[in-house]
Design a protein around this nucleic acid. Structure first.
Lengths: 210, 210
DNA sequence: TTATTTATGTACCATACCGTATAGTACATA
DNA sequence: TATGTACTATACGGTATGGTACATAAATAA
């Protein structure tokens, strides 16, 4: 993306802004208003840059959005990795739910819900590039979740015959369910109840399955 | 909304278009491009009406959208009611999944995914009226699903101690999961596999729970 | 110094947007 | 026939849109 080789001495006039910072602000703006609902003027105002700087740094609106999406996915990937690295399986799943809900409600009024669901999903109707990015992100979450159950199986935490992918799908489906409801304005307690319900399902199923 | 009292003899020149028909076409256009991504000119072209007629009949863009959302929700409510009316619990749940997937993939290229998720969810960030409509629709689905399990419990199909709401949440979460993936371009077989997985979960849980 | 490179601001362009005004027409009741 | 309503068709108004030209500023390279 943006060439930022630390060793390359930077030829011309240096940037006055930090790319990640700008990206984060742009992401929050898209988050709130959606992709089509966000104008470049809004983005310029939100980032503090002038439009030519935005265009110079990112190309056009869609490329800026894709960069913001990448930024979001990279962030959430880290969050998931951390939560899934928690030792006990159920502590780990609990951390996942907690992290998701926290992310979906972050900033109270601005940027509720899941960035991907709220801004990328609608665009999938007409933009195959965005659709592909969404599928990849979803696949990645599926795999990460299944791996966690696999690990728990290998570690003897759950029955040997358990199906890691099926168990993972409970968590993933709950994740998207909670994401949508967070956007629609459901209260924290309601979201948490949904998460607890999913955890309970896993708890009942994991050791007994076949 | 649109005054269409059948008993009122309709004073002036009658409408040449059918409101539901126009609404369905508008809905499909919103479905494909999203709310913010759809212009009134597109809607006029899609419905065959001229803009003044659209404004005259529906008010403005947002009211037209809300009418289209109502139209969609009414349709899907009927579909759910039919599927949930199928006698056997598991036949009924199977019908629900089948119906959802069919709806999400209907029209191949146009209008993939769930209309509400693809067009209303993004707007929830800034529009409390739409957010409320989404919450109501979600609540309704929750209740309808729980009622079906309740009925199965009372009919002796599943264990008496089962939690209808918890079982329902499996189906509902799977529904939203499938909705998002349909929009992102997952293949029919993949969606069906997710549905089957949810059904299997219910099958394992329903009779054994507590 | 001077040239080169890149970023920054201001102003701007062409187009698209939502919504409406206008002007005439068709169909109903009174 | 008179009147009220809703249609068709076109054009427009004011603004917002995505994107850019242009002059200037700040850094490095020669």
């Amino acid at each position: 993306m943006v060439q930022k080789n630390a060793d390359a001495p930077a030829r011309g006039r240096p940037r006055k802004f930090d790319t990640d910072d700008v990206l984060a602000r742009a992401r929050d703006t898209f988050w709130r208003y959606g992709y089509a609902g966000t104008s470049m003027d809004q983005l310029a105002a939100a980032t503090g840059l002038h439009k030519p700087s935005l265009y110079g740094a990112f190309g056009d609106k869609k490329q800026l959005y894709l960069a913001a999406l990448d930024n979001y996915l990279a962030d959430i990937r880290v969050d998931f990795a951390e939560a899934l690295a928690v030792p006990g399986l159920f502590d780990s799943l609990d951390a996942v739910i907690e992290m998701s809900i926290d992310r979906f409600l972050r900033g109270a009024e601005n940027g509720q819900g899941c960035f991907m669901m709220s801004t990328a999903i609608p665009e999938c109707g007409e933009d195959p590039e965005i659709a592909r990015a969404v599928r990849e992100a979803m696949d990645m979450l599926d795999r990460a979740m299944a791996r966690r159950f696999q690990k728990a199986m290998e570690g003897g935490e759950i029955a040997d015959a358990a199906d890691p992918a099926a168990l993972g799908s409970i968590m993933v489906a709950a994740h998207y369910d909670i994401a949508g409801r967070a956007r629609a304005g459901y209260a924290l307690a309601e979201l948490r109840a949904l998460g607890d319900r999913a955890l309970e399902l896993v708890r009942v199923l994991a050791p007994t399955r076949n």
